[in-house]
């Protein structure tokens, strides 16, 4: 385990050193992240115009959801995108061979090779929005905060697993490199509390694409509205997805025959 930590430190160090060369990118990306956050808040203010509620959530409570959503967005941008989206390229060019030959778990190596610090702003803005809204809400208590942190970590695990499975399909569909855009598109539903959707939307975003467990459930726990069932549900989904994605990866590797062989 400590070996893995050490490797992550080396990988991230190298990755960051490269990115520090392009300093203008920081400013540009920061503006982009800020614009996106302002857009989300602006959108929310249109939906909750005149003190109305959004699926039973008032403006401040809904900002918590936007915060969790932005945090998840940041997680994808910083940790997932720069790593997992290279699986397709590896399969196509055959460079996956070198990864598989290393004396280390290939899934670990593929998932931790790079980090994109340009998107760290999203993580910070997400946390900022959550803290800002929490300070205005008296219902936020420490046990809720602890559970929310746990659920956010579970959300990271769920997103990672889904993203990883989508990228693993590259072993069969080499041509389809934009498949993660699909998840990305639907994940945008997570910037609203799931109760904002009519019945069929709620079912879709809870059971088919588990967006609700990733953003709404942690936010509920934080503002002291959490229910035991949904919290256990979110943890269960995360564990299940981790196991399934691992099995899927093993299955994909069995079918891997390298490029042009």
């Amino acid at each position: 385990m400590s070996r893995h930590w050490q490797l992550i430190k080396i990988f991230y160090g190298a990755s960051i050193a490269v990115q520090l060369e392009y300093r203008v990118n920081f400013v540009v990306n920061l503006i982009g992240s800020l614009l996106t956050a302002i857009g989300s808040l602006f959108g929310l203010s249109i939906l909750i115009a005149g003190g109305s509620s959004l699926g039973g959530w008032n403006q401040t409570e809904a900002i918590v959801v936007v915060g969790v959503f932005t945090l998840m967005e940041g997680f994808m941008g910083v940790f997932l995108y720069p790593n997992l989206n290279k699986i397709g390229e590896g399969v196509r060019t055959g460079s996956m061979d070198f990864t598989l030959l290393k004396p280390l778990d290939a899934q670990f190596l593929i998932s931790s090779r790079d980090v994109n610090i340009l998107r760290v702003a999203d993580l910070l803005i997400g946390v900022g929005l959550i803290v800002y809204a929490s300070l205005k809400l008296s219902s936020v208590q420490s046990p809720g905060i602890l559970i929310a942190v746990l659920l956010i970590l579970a959300g990271f695990a769920s997103i990672y697993s889904i993203w990883f499975m989508l990228c693993t399909t590259a072993f069969w569909w080499v041509g389809v490199e934009n498949i993660t855009e699909l998840f990305w598109g639907f994940f945008r539903a997570g910037q609203f509390p799931v109760t904002a959707f009519p019945g069929w939307g709620r079912i879709l975003f809870t059971f088919v694409i588990p967006v609700a467990f990733i953003t709404t459930v942690p936010a509920e726990a934080l503002i002291g509205r959490g229910k035991l069932e949904t919290a256990i549900g979110a943890l269960g989904v995360a564990v299940l997805l981790l196991i399934v994605s691992r099995l899927f990866w093993k299955f994909a590797l069995k079918n891997y025959t390298s490029a042009s062989s």
Binding site: L47, S52, L54, G55, F186, R188, A189, F192, A196, F197, P198, W200, G201
Partner: peptide, 9 residues
């Protein structure tokens, strides 16, 4: 997505 949010509203 927005269609279903607005219909819900």
């Amino acid at each position: 997505i927005m269609m279903s949010v607005w219909i819900g509203k």
